[in-house]
Write a protein that binds this DNA or RNA. Sequence first.
DNA 1: CGAGTATTTATACGCTTGCATAATTAGAGC
DNA 2: GCTCTAATTATGCAAGCGTATAAATACTCG
Lengths: 218, 218
Amino acid sequence: MNAQSATRKTFRREGEDKRREDLIAATLECVAERGLAGATVREIAMRADVTAGLIRYYFPTKDDLISAAYRAVMNRMTVQASDALQNAANDPRARLQAFVTANLGEPIMDPHNLSLWAGFIALVHADPVMAAAHRDGYLGFRDELEILIREALIATGKPAERVHTRRHAIAINAIIDGLWLEGCLARDIFAEGELAETGIIAIEAVLGISLTAEGDAR
Amino acid sequence: MNAQSATRKTFRREGEDKRREDLIAATLECVAERGLAGATVREIAMRADVTAGLIRYYFPTKDDLISAAYRAVMNRMTVQASDALQNAANDPRARLQAFVTANLGEPIMDPHNLSLWAGFIALVHADPVMAAAHRDGYLGFRDELEILIREALIATGKPAERVHTRRHAIAINAIIDGLWLEGCLARDIFAEGELAETGIIAIEAVLGISLTAEGDAR
DNA sequence: CGAGTATTTATACGCTTGCATAATTAGAGC
DNA sequence: GCTCTAATTATGCAAGCGTATAAATACTCG
């Protein structure tokens, strides 16, 4: 009723989960567009259509928000890769192929994912807690891969001893990571699906089996 | 002779090259230890035993210094890998092996290098100039690799058409990058030389040739 | 429908940052 | 040795940062 200047922002009280998700999403937007440095509390708040103070209500410190955002991305990528497995055929070789193809295509192979990942990696070196979290994620991924490899080898009638599957998992993990990296950094210099195909061929060579053919041997 | 309080810092006039090198080295120290965020002009100046203002005398803006530092790192790694080639035997297969081993061992496979690389990668996405610099570096590395691959194939009496060597280069580059990454992130969970050996074996499988044996064929 | 509370806004503080600029000084050249 | 200049220091500023905290308000429950 008085000069109604500086009208206070109207707002809705959202559920705690919704707000956290929105804030994390806004954070990812910022990081994706302008790097970690561009993810300031004020910018994040603006994107989430919220005032800066609210961030501290849900996340004690900005680092907590950042690390939550990182976990969200890693989790999202893991889930997306697993989803591809669920929709895959029963044949172990087809499953391994689906896993590789999923990791080397949209939406996992995306520059934004790399940006956030890289920004976080730079922190891993300093923060032991994050280092542990990262290692767990890496080993989890590799273990999942090793299982796929063993089953594919067995399905082809090949020996699948632990000593070898471990080494294969390390190498194939490297192939996937390396191609993912290349794709994220310069997707435009590769043809559509080229990297996934390259990965499959390389992995077939490493394992000495075919992932596409129906037969047990070549 | 007056109260000599606040005595001005004594200094030496260094050559332009020396100063630039020192500043870049100090920058790399900062980035390696505390990430890109830790590389402030004041901190860099302190490490270089210089006052902050001097940085602007040699680099118009902080970003220029950062990007110069990035180029220095990439260049250093490239040179180190090339050095390994110079000392290698004449046989193309041995040369390829030496190249791989060098990239997957000290001093290239070092957590600090990864920190630096990751910190800069986060910027590449935003800054087109850096993106170009990075792409040049990547393509240069891959071209060098492709030549090694072609020569190794020819030495083994295998066909080495461009279509195939390009694909091989992409895959093998991925193997090297991926293993480098794994090693930098968690060197302690791998045995000494394990990653280099794993890389060699995987690459031999991809190319279908042996890099260690003397014979032309298996 | 009214009171109470959890959620949200608003404001301000102290710090650090990159950058500008004036004052100094080391060292080269005559 | 003097002079001149380029290299270096010292100081300051405006902007943006994360965070703290008090005031306001939307929703819940009786």
